[in-house]
Design a protein around this nucleic acid. Structure first.
Lengths: 118, 118
DNA sequence: ATAACACTTGAACAACTGTTCAACTTTCAT
DNA sequence: ATGAAAGTTGAACAGTTGTTCAAGTGTTAT
């Protein structure tokens, strides 16, 4: 077998691997949703809000005070978290109390913590 | 106890909770790093690259072909992933083969998948 | 030495994102 | 009813980010 023939064989093998790589890829939309979820965790304000809610529900005003932020800024971020089904809110009088809406929040955060603690 | 006195007591209790909330917050820098990590996962291109590397190492060219992207765009994203210690690369001849640099990548991705599969 | 392949890198541009500001709404106390 | 407290919402602005393009670096084959 000549050198150029061998190269052809190698190319074919490589193409087969490439083919497999493409086939094994989850659907585009799935990967997009996954990235979209992590994007929500990818902001320190939202991370801080989720940490504030780890133990118990907290009203918007207290979150804003604890994080030294305006009500408006916190409300905007809570809305993003709510749309991603990560937190939920309930009204009680004048206040709206927010809490984590999913056990996965704790898991995802603790997964990330393991990586940076090294 | 009058209504206004009662309110003062309630305010004090609330302030204590606020104080605890502030004290229990991890240091600012830690939360920033955590958000920074998730930010890396929060892009569908980088997610796709990490999925491509789940099974075995792949060279930049093959990643680019599999994901239908330019070499340059893939290289830029690989660099971001490398800086976050999520992938590593090794040169073999003309090609550079990249692979996952941390078992946490799989864990974090699978954590995220659990949330969106519901 | 030259050319070709496989990347890498920096600048630039468009698109996206988070905060602020101002204008609401809701609820409660007077 | 009026006002105050607690939130929400939309527009706007500045800052960030991903891709492209052009120019570079290594490596191998001729």
């Amino acid at each position: 077998m000549s050198a150029t023939e061998l190269e052809k064989v190698i190319t074919v093998v490589t193409n087969e691997q490439l083919q497999k790589l493409k086939e094994n890829m989850p659907p585009e939309e799935y990967l997009y949703d996954l990235a979209e979820l992590f994007k929500v965790f990818g902001d320190s304000t939202r991370i801080r809000i989720m940490f504030a809610l780890l133990d118990k529900e907290v009203c918007v005003n207290d979150i804003a005070e604890a994080l030294n932020m305006t009500l408006s800024a916190v409300s905007h971020q809570l809305n993003i978290l709510k749309r991603s089904k990560l937190v939920k809110g309930r009204r009680e009088g004048k206040s709206v109390y927010y809490s984590l809406d999913d056990e996965h929040v704790r898991e995802i955060i603790s997964c990330g913590m393991e990586h940076i603690e090294e």
